[in-house]
Simulated assay, not measured.
Amino acid sequence: MSAPTTPRRTIALAALTAVVGLAGSLLTAPTAAAPAREVGHTRVLARIQKPGFPAYVHVHTNGRVYVGTYTNPAGDAMRSRVFEYTGSGTLLRSWTVPGQDLAAPRGVQVATSDARGRLVVLEKSRGRVLTLDPRTGRFRLQATIPDSPDAGKPIPNYAAWGPDGALYVSDYGQAVIWRIPAAGGVPRAWFRSAALDGLEFGTTGIVYQPSTRSFLISQQTTSDPLDLLRGHLYRLRVRADGRPGALSTVWTSGPLDLPDGFGIARSGNIYLSLLGTNQLVKLSPQGRVVRRFPAANGSGVDFDSPSNATFLGTRVLVANQSAVISTPDHHVILDVEVGERGLPLHLPTRSRLR
């Protein structure tokens, strides 16, 4: 017969059992740092309803995901919509864009948000900059990009807040970066350059990097025929007086790669969608190609006119626009694991329009 256990020995045995159990669980449980997905693993986050043709994916500070839609190249009478999703891809709400010219090519891009939480929506058919308050569903006209007599119709494409709290807008149709004051008002041509003048395919992404006090700007092609329809990623520094500095080339693409939107990791690496050759490319901060994510990505939906790369945690969300072959089943948001986190959205406290 064993000796009876005293209360003190009972407590000690219980503590020892707990420690042994904890050690066993630590040995068998996966570590918190272990990645749930391999780098490059791609899946479909969400399928886009009509009218389809999703554009830039914006991740709001509220954790929700917003995407706008473009027109069907075959022609239809549908107005563009803005969709709202959770970070896991559940559709929550959508809004139909008012005031579009249904006789013209149309589309909207949810380019960013402001310090009041409103979405900044760039509208193609009339060259408008709108805000959408997701709490009320109210759209408000903030500005209209003017025509240039010698450059054609404006197409506001991407936008980023600058160091002064003003909104800077790239123009796909004109070789201009526009500046809209922090309090709202008339857009002014802040930077013009022949380097931004595309041969039909113009200026696309724009992201501000506070660490270098500069904008990174992507360009699908230039108007120089000797450039062989290659695209570029440029750096444009902002001088202390707020004026643009010199434009320099970070990276030059292959012919008809058609660089579109991009996202920047905290490491400085750049993830850039190539709309023309259906790839996602990872560049070092100096512009060296580190990795290419090919069209056949394993998700069941190949990259098909991918138009952006937006960080959500260690994932990059890509709008699959299918702009050329117009396949509705390809109108999705793709979710690519890249194994590193994105640079936080630059959102100054003054970043608000009217």
Rank of each mutant, 00 (worst) to 15 (best):
M1Q: 09
P4R: 14
T5Q: 09
T5S: 04
L16H: 03
L22E: 05
A23C: 13
S25N: 11
T28L: 14
P30A: 13
T31W: 03
A33W: 04
R37M: 14
E38A: 12
T42L: 00
L45I: 05
I48N: 00
I48A: 00
Q49T: 06
A55I: 05
H58C: 02
V59H: 03
V59I: 10
N62L: 05
R64I: 01
R64Q: 14
V67T: 12
G68E: 05
N72Y: 04
P73D: 02
P73N: 04
D76H: 10
D76S: 06
A77Y: 07
F83W: 13
E84L: 01
Y85T: 00
T86F: 08
S88W: 09
L92G: 05
W95A: 01
V97C: 00
G99T: 06
Q100R: 06
P105Q: 13
R118C: 00
E123W: 11
K124I: 15
S125T: 07
S125Q: 06
L132H: 07
L132S: 06
D133W: 08
F139R: 07
L141H: 03
T144E: 14
D147Y: 12
D147H: 15
G152S: 03
G165I: 05
I177G: 07
W178I: 11
W190H: 11
F191A: 03
G198T: 05
L199D: 14
Y208T: 07
T212G: 13
T212P: 08
S214Q: 13
Q219G: 00
L226W: 11
L228R: 13
L229G: 13
L236F: 06
R237F: 01
R237V: 12
R239C: 11
R239S: 12
A240F: 02
D241T: 01
G242L: 08
P244V: 10
S253F: 04
L258R: 10
G263H: 10
I264F: 10
R266Y: 08
S267W: 10
G268V: 09
L280K: 01
K282Y: 04
R291D: 00
A295I: 02
A295D: 02
G298T: 03
S299E: 03
S305R: 05
N308A: 07
N308S: 13
T310G: 07
F311K: 09
F311L: 09
F311P: 08
A319Y: 09
S322I: 00
S326R: 15
P328L: 06
P328I: 04
H330W: 01
I333P: 09
L334C: 03
V336G: 09
E340N: 08
P344K: 03
T349D: 12
